[in-house]
Computed example of a mutant assay.
Amino acid sequence: MNTITLSKPISKDGNEITALNLDFDKITGNKIIAAEKEARLLGDTTPDACYSKTFQAILAAKAAAESVVVDDILGLSGSDFIQITNTVSNFLFNWALPVSAQAS
């Protein structure tokens, strides 16, 4: 699980979320496909969804242990948004590395 401390908390239902815990173990192929479909419905036209910040934000919301939606992720400060989407990007693209590179 990846924990990202937010510089500006998310206010949700009278509660403040100060960190997001991204659990990529709960991400399945079905969730990845659903995230891509959602990104397309939001108007994203990036040829490969893995490079899309919209797709990455949706996947972050799906991976979060906290009850957040994509609009919560999109509403983060720029620095928090980049940190979250970079974490998702690392999850997506570490799969593409050769096994020997992953072990380093």
Rank of each mutant, 00 (worst) to 15 (best):
E38G: 04
D13P: 01
T3Q: 14
T3L: 09
W95H: 04
A60V: 00
A65F: 06
I82Q: 12
I27T: 15
N86Q: 09
L6F: 12
C50W: 08
K26C: 04
N90F: 15
K62Y: 02
I32R: 10
K62D: 01
I84G: 02
I17R: 02
A96M: 02
W95D: 13
S52Q: 13
A19R: 06
G14K: 05
L59V: 06
I84D: 08
T87Q: 03
K31P: 00
W95Q: 13
V68L: 04
D23I: 07
A34L: 04
D23Q: 15
T28P: 07
N2P: 15
P98H: 01
A61E: 00
S52E: 12
Y51P: 06
A49S: 08
S104E: 10
T3P: 11
N90Q: 09
I82M: 05
T3I: 11
G78F: 10
I33G: 01
T28I: 10
S104G: 05
F24N: 15
Q83N: 13
L6T: 04
T87P: 12
D71A: 08
M1E: 09
T54E: 02
I84H: 11
A35I: 07
V99M: 05
A101K: 09
L6H: 09
N21T: 12
V99S: 15
N30D: 15
A49W: 02
Y51A: 07
K26S: 11
G78L: 14
N15Q: 09
D71V: 12
D23C: 11
A49C: 05
S7R: 15
S7Q: 15
Q83T: 06
A63V: 04
V69C: 00
D13Y: 05
M1R: 10
G43N: 12
Q83C: 10
D13F: 05
I84F: 14
L22G: 12
D23P: 10
D44S: 03
L22S: 06
E16V: 07
T28E: 04
T5S: 13
I27A: 07
G14V: 14
A34D: 08
A39K: 04
A101N: 03
F93I: 10
F24A: 11
D71L: 10
